[in-house]
């Protein structure tokens, strides 16, 4: 009985975590290759879901074609233009001006979304109609399963691309040591552009998966951005794998904490407390712990660069 709920929580935590991982990986990639801490990441995700909805309505197309179209739009705007117009000119002034600019960009996107699509939440179609599958005593929704499957396929494809192709490895090299990459003749600027395009693809995918459950809403980018940031810090900013695991970790911990804190039985008494409102504190504590004791992230590596 207890185990069944644990597994069910785990599955839904993994489903949520898989989406968080998509959000965090792109965030970490941008940081690694170009030193961009993108505080507009959450808004990129949020507005991507509105773009998908808009395309569906405008062109009378289904969710999947709208997603692919939105992906190209997002790659152009949040990949190419974002890099060319905001990141390239500002990066030479250091991290801080760019951070402030991305915060500003996030606010602008949020407000524009509110102006164009309104402040009300909008429903968002899901990839599959949810059906409950029963394995033994375990009930799993197909919505969760599809989310996990899609996210894992995307992540696996990304990993394969990064590790198994020369371009992917050149991007990794750029992320690990830009100066050396340049000395070896790697087209660093192009590799950075690729990471921006990949990030745009990832945010659109995250939007596709997260919005059916959480609804399209102009203000939800704040939460997404925070999660991407937290996942990247917890897992390790400087590694794709770190951000990935950070995303999963937050999804799972969040679910488990809320569940198990809802009824905390004080030992030797019959008092049961509902501490679930404090469940948010657990990922936060983890975050603080990581910052204090392992600032490179649980799965990150210490920076060592020379030249």
């Amino acid at each position: 009985m207890q185990l069944q709920f644990f597994v069910q929580l785990l599955v839904s935590g993994i489903a949520t975590g898989a989406i968080y991982a998509l959000m965090a990986v792109g965030f970490a990639l941008l940081w690694q290759t170009s030193g961009t801490i993108n505080f507009a990441q959450g808004e990129f995700i949020m507005v991507s879901s509105f773009i998908i909805l808009w395309l569906m309505g405008l062109l009378h197309i289904g969710l999947v074609p709208a997603f692919f179209l939105a992906m190209f739009i997002s790659m152009f705007i949040f990949g190419f233009l974002f890099k060319r117009i905001l990141v390239d000119p500002l990066l030479k002034y250091g991290d801080v001006p760019l951070i402030i600019a991305t915060i500003g960009l996030g606010m602008i996107i949020r407000e524009l979304t509110r102006i164009f699509w309104g402040a009300n939440a909008l429903p968002f179609p899901s990839l599959v109609k949810n059906k409950i599958l029963i394995f033994g005593g375990l009930r799993v929704g197909t919505a969760d399963l599809v989310t996990i499957a899609v996210a894992i396929v995307i992540i696996a494809a990304l990993q394969l691309f990064l590790n198994k192709t020369f371009v992917g490895r050149s991007m990794e090299a750029t992320a690990q040591n830009q100066d050396v990459a340049r000395i070896l003749g790697i087209n660093v600027d192009r590799m950075i552009l690729y990471t921006f395009l990949i990030n745009a693809f990832l945010v659109t995918s995250a939007a596709l998966l997260v919005t059916p459950k959480l609804l399209a809403k102009f203000s939800s980018g704040e939460t997404f951005g925070l999660i991407a940031f937290m996942a990247a810090i917890i897992g390790g900013f400087n590694q794709v794998r770190g951000a990935l695991i950070g995303g999963f970790l937050i999804g799972i911990i969040d679910n488990l904490a809320k569940f198990y804190l809802a009824r905390v039985h004080l030992p030797f008494t019959d008092i049961t407390l509902n501490l679930s409102p404090y469940a948010l504190a657990i990922p936060l504590l983890l975050l603080i712990g990581v910052i204090l004791f392992k600032p490179e992230g649980i799965f990150g590596r210490k920076e060592e660069r020379s030249i």
Partner: peptide, 15 residues
Amino acid sequence: LSTEQQQADFTPEVL
């Protein structure tokens, strides 16, 4: 079960 304003995911509550 107490939940938060603007809460995103209700799966734990549901379970």
